[in-house]
Design a protein around this nucleic acid. Structure first.
Length: 99
DNA sequence: CGGCTGGCGTCGT
DNA sequence: TACGACGCCAGCC
């Protein structure tokens, strides 16, 4: 299975209302420091909508980027019950999902 | 808090 | 096929 396939599959394990970081996701698929790689793949994202790439944020608690616009990502997160403020997760520690 | 460097896969040339 | 640039970061200074 391709790396990206594994990434998408892992990401699907993240329940609605919870988020994860690029680093955690990277390690979950076998990468130690491949956060940027994750971002690259997410950016390609051949299955938008199916893959909730908006549930992935930076380890610092910031929202991070999004192929369709950071504001869209923020909106989607809020829609799932994840509060944000000034481009960063409000209750980051609480909503983080550990694999 | 801002800036610079490190590290990894994919894409384009 | 090989090499360099890029991307929705992370971490240290």
């Amino acid at each position: 299975m391709n790396l990206e396939q594994k990434i998408y599959k892992k990401l699907l394990e993240v329940p609605k209302g919870q988020i994860t970081t690029y680093g955690e996701l990277a390690k979950a698929v076998g990468l130690k420091n491949g956060q940027r790689a994750i971002g690259k793949i997410m950016n390609k994202n051949p299955y938008p909508v199916i893959v909730p790439c908006h549930r992935v944020v930076m380890s610092t608690g910031k929202i991070g980027g999004y192929a369709y616009g950071e504001h869209i990502k923020t909106k989607l997160l809020n829609d799932e019950g994840i509060k944000t403020e000034n481009g960063k997760i409000k209750d980051f520690e609480k909503n983080v999902f550990r694999f």
